[in-house]
Nucleic acid binder design. Structure first.
Length: 890
RNA sequence: GCACACAUGACGCAGUAGGUUUAGCGUGUUUGCCUUACAAGCAAAAAGUCGCAGGUUCAAAUCCUGCUGUGUGCACCA
């Protein structure tokens, strides 16, 4: 039998073989039934994406949870899918078209979308295929995409509903503008470099009107915006500038007269204490402008070039940064530049394009967040939704309490087109409806013009922010909104899937998207189903390299996941990632850990080779019974600990526990204990027990290492087609036998001690060695003596009440053992060994004694604690006496 | 700037209601082994007074205060 099994485990064919088998039998398919459900919805990866280390970690964790639930008897469902990632995808498609010589501006919306869908069909599924390589046990028949037909309908419906409820409004607001992608961004999509960016702070002189040789000096990083200035502001309490308030300054180069106003916003300490106000291009300036009724002069086009409002013809049409370079020279030449100092600025950049974000005044769609998010804030406070680790509660609370309205419109084509239809030029000349037909009805009614025609309606050109679709994910993947009635603002029913699977059990995701996505899903969950979308949110750590830098493809510090899998197997990589991933902490990734995972697989494989190599005999061998009893209880105990760890999402620790249980307890101890002598058969009872243990271990390990455990499971016993470890159930838990456990642990200790004696005395593993035991309860030891004798190669084992001369003495608890040595043993070495142990015990006893002789300790500490200390001391003293006697005999 | 984490042998971590023998685990290091499942292995060893300074307590890696360092989130000034 063993000749069929390679000496080294070969995962490559095994992994693809079993994944195909699982798919063929649809083991991951879930439909509602009478069992309790356990549901996870995948955080949909970006459809343009390819697998990176973060995905590997977070999907491994999801797979572990879902596989474990499946084996615990739940009806486990893991819903996969992708989101359409409007900016990222559109940017990719635009870029691809450009390579083909096609400009987006030359295409109609429909033509462009056709290209985009082609692109999606071709590349959109890559990342899901990669998840299969990892072993992900998703129900692929339920794969969803945020622009699927029903999903699209859901997003539009929700927009209309929130509009009807008054949560959505259209307004002129200062927004973040991406001049490259030509779209608005939400605050969350703007990123700042960690330590700022090198910039210059320019000091400019603005003359005072009608007062020759008087001026104010302002500081700015953006001299190209001065043509949009409409005022100068100083702090009303600033003694330096009292005389200037109410006067008029002249904007350099264009000589526009602007008032000098007083506003407490101005920080007297900063710069010169004079602030130029450019309401069109700075959020704070805009607000001050509103307070003082300042005009707004928007000098920058959507693409970042300057327009005719800048009044300087030679700058019109030039990019703002080009203008900056030139205008500095011009200002200098004309005597307006006072200073140019190096300055570190926090510059906002678009998350997707990296382009410097331009604050711009723009008419956009917003969701009012304050009221709609109230329940969601409370839910996390009350642990209706539990964040793991809990430290994120603070972060969440802070964001929710200071939540700002969410700009949801994007000036893109790839996405859900805003269902607003305009019939006139006025700001409010629009209606919101699911279809153009309905829009026409409503518009006719609203305008009172029954002759209004469809071609007089113009649908909003913009699409919705991607997160304004993915925030519905836990409901929309089940097509839940099909049954939502916009009239009554209620569900007419919950479809069977939604009723069965919602709320989901856990969401596993990266902390970066706590606000982008998680918070908003909670909001949507309460708004629509009045229920949390998931019970727990497990926020994974960030995968970092050895230098502690976040791994990313763009930085080039990330290994290629599929290459890792090729090198170490999916099982190995899964284990490698988990080894380094304590709950909620960052993951310092080290390829070595994948190697460790691979080695572990090999270890298990070889345990299989050993077991499958055994011949059996019906003859009974009672000597193995203590080992069997011990291991049986040990599994029970380990399962309890695993349950405990999983309950707290201590998945890495659970893996570590299993790792050492399998490697140390099963392979190194149990298998060695029951292993028959060379070419001897094993009794059937032990063999069957061993196969059973091995099978249970594989079941416990299966969520972590799905492939090798299936391979072993299939080898351990003959299986029918359609049987699989992944749908097998854990046996019903029993209680551990404490005596059997203790006996096993003591057997382990004795074996280690005896091995130690051999090493220290330079004895070969099989040199004859008689053992004498002076123990309080010989009966306790009786059952393990045969196996101890065999495994420690003991010549004999005898109970005694006397000292044994010429022996190495050691203690287990308070029981004394003597390994009898031949007369020529090294007395000096033995003395030294005993001395060392005595010294340790003296030190120990001293520290315990110090406690016990402390009056206050004895009187204030709980009795149990004091008694424990007394017991410690008594044991130590008993040991000391025995050791000292042994030393005296030498 | 505000807030929140974290600081344990060479490295990565555990120590989850102050008291399970003077702190555990993995990797690495050193030593000895190709022992008939596994050198992707086996057996053993060395290595930390738990960032620093105080405090509370009979008792502190564990609680409190301050400091230092690192990380994260939020805000942001011309």
């Amino acid at each position: 039998m063993s000749s069929e099994l390679n000496k080294v485990y070969n995962p490559e064919e095994v992994e693809s073989k079993w994944y195909a088998y699982w798919e063929k039998h649809r083991f991951f398919r879930s439909t509602p039934d009478e069992r309790p459900a356990y549901t996870i919805v995948i955080p949909p990866p970006n459809v343009t994406g390819v697998l990176h280390m973060g995905h590997m970690l977070n999907n491994t964790i999801q797979d572990i949870l879902i596989r474990r639930a499946r084996m615990k008897g739940y009806n486990a469902l893991w819903v996969p899918g992708t989101d359409h990632a409007s900016i990222a995808t559109e940017a990719k498609v635009v870029q691809l078209l450009r390579q083909q010589g096609i400009k987006k501006s030359d295409l109609t919306r429909d033509e462009f979308l056709k290209h985009a869908y082609e692109w999606k069909d071709k590349y959109g599924g890559i990342i899901l295929k990669q998840l299969e390589k990892l072993g992900a046990s998703c129900d692929w028949e339920r794969t969803r995409f945020t622009m699927d037909e029903t999903y699209y309908r859901a997003v539009i419906k929700v927009f209309i509903d929130l509009y009807n409820k008054g949560y959505i409004y259209r307004g002129l607001r200062m927004i973040n503008w991406d001049c490259e992608a030509l779209t608005a961004l939400s605050n969350e999509e703007v990123q700042y470099a960690e330590n700022g960016e090198a910039s210059k702070m320019y000091s400019l002189r603005y003359p005072i009107q009608n007062e020759p040789d008087t001026w104010v000096i302002i500081a700015t990083q953006r001299p190209e915006t001065i043509m949009g200035d409409t005022a100068i502001a100083v702090n009303p309490n600033d003694p330096r500038y009292q005389h200037l308030i109410g006067k008029t300054a002249l904007v350099p180069l264009i000589n526009r007269p602007v008032p000098i106003i007083a506003d407490t916003y101005v920080d007297m300490e900063f710069g010169t204490g004079c602030l130029k106000l450019t309401p069109a291009h700075d959020p704070n300036d805009y607000e001050i402008g509103q307070r003082h009724n300042l005009p707004i002069i928007d000098t920058i086009n959507l693409n970042g070039t300057l327009n005719e409002l800048c009044e300087l013809p030679h700058y019109i049409g030039l990019d703002r940064f080009e203008v900056r370079k030139r205008i500095i020279k011009e200002l200098e030449e004309k005597g307006h530049l006072v200073a140019a100092n190096d300055y570190t600025a926090r510059i906002g950049r678009s998350e997707r394009t990296g382009s410097v974000v331009e604050p711009k005044l723009s008419l956009q769609w917003f969701i009012k967040m304050k009221e709609i998010s109230r329940r969601a804030l409370q839910a996390v406070e009350d642990n209706e939704v539990q964040l793991i680790p809990a430290k994120y509660k603070n972060t969440y609370r802070h964001w929710m309490e200071n939540v700002r309205d969410w700009c949801i419109s994007r000036q893109l084509w790839w996405g859900h087109r805003i269902p607003a239809y305009y019939y006139g030029e006025g700001e409010n000349d629009f209606v919101v409806a699911e279809t153009p037909e309905q829009a026409l009805q409503i518009a006719r009614h609203k305008t009172g013009n029954p002759h209004l025609q469809a071609n007089q309606l113009r649908q909003d050109e913009d699409v919705l922010d991607t997160w304004a679709s993915s925030w519905l994910w836990p409901i929309a993947v089940f097509d839940g909104f099909e049954d939502y009635d916009l009239e009554t603002q209620q569900f007419t029913r919950l479809n069977p899937d939604l009723a069965y699977y919602y709320p989901t059990d856990v969401l596993v995701t990266a902390p970066e998207i706590l606000f982008f996505w998680v918070a908003r899903m909670i909001i949507a969950g309460y708004e629509y189903l009045d229920k949390h979308p998931f019970k727990d949110v497990y926020l994974t750590g960030i995968v970092r390299d050895k230098l502690g830098i976040k791994m990313s493809k763009s930085l080039g510090n990330s290994p290629e996941p599929l290459e890792l899998i090729a090198k170490y197997s999916a099982d190995g990589v899964r284990v490698g990632m988990l080894f380094a991933s304590p709950a909620g902490n960052d993951l310092p990734f080290d390829e070595k850990l994948c190697e460790q995972g691979r080695n572990f697989a090999n270890k298990i494989w070889n345990a299989l080779r050993l077991v499958k190599g055994w011949q059996t005999t019906p003859a009974h061998n009672p000597h193995n019974q203590p080992a069997i009893n011990w291991f049986e209880s040990k599994i029970v105990q380990t399962r309890q600990e695993l349950d405990n760890l999983f309950e707290q999402y201590r998945i890495s620790e659970a893996l570590n526990l299993l790792y050492s249980f399998i490697w140390d307890d099963f392979c190194a101890v149990y298998l060695e204990l029951v292993k028959p002598d060379f070419e001897q058969p094993l009794d059937e009872t032990t063999y069957r027990a061993t196969i059973g243990f091995f099978e249970q271990l594989m079941q416990l390990l299966h969520p972590f290492m799905p492939f090798i455990t299936e391979e072993i499971y299939q080898h351990l016993q003959p299986r029918q087609e359609g049987e699989s470890i992944c749908i097998s159930h854990y046996p019903t838990p029993t209680l551990p036998d404490e005596t059997a456990l203790k006996r096993g642990e003591i057997l382990k200790t004795l074996l280690t001690q005896l091995r130690d004696v051999r090493v220290k005395k330079n004895l070969k593993p099989k040199d004859p060695l008689p053992l004498f035991a002076n123990v309080s309860q010989p009966d306790f030891y009786q059952p393990i003596i045969p196996v101890l004798q065999k495994k420690a190669f003991l010549q004999s084992v005898e109970f005694t009440a006397a000292e044994v001369p010429n022996s190495a003495m050691f203690m287990v608890g308070t029981d004394v053992f003597y390994a009898a040595l031949s007369s020529d043993f090294d007395v000096a070495a033995e003395k030294e060994r005993l001395h060392k142990e005595i010294d340790y015990l003296i030190g120990f006893a001293k520290s315990v004694n110090a406690k016990l002789s402390n009056e206050k300790f004895v009187s204030s500490a709980p009795e149990a604690v004091v008694n424990k200390e007394r017991q410690k001391l008594a044991d130590a003293e008993q040991k000391l006496t025995a050791l000292q006697e042994a030393l005296g005999k030498l």
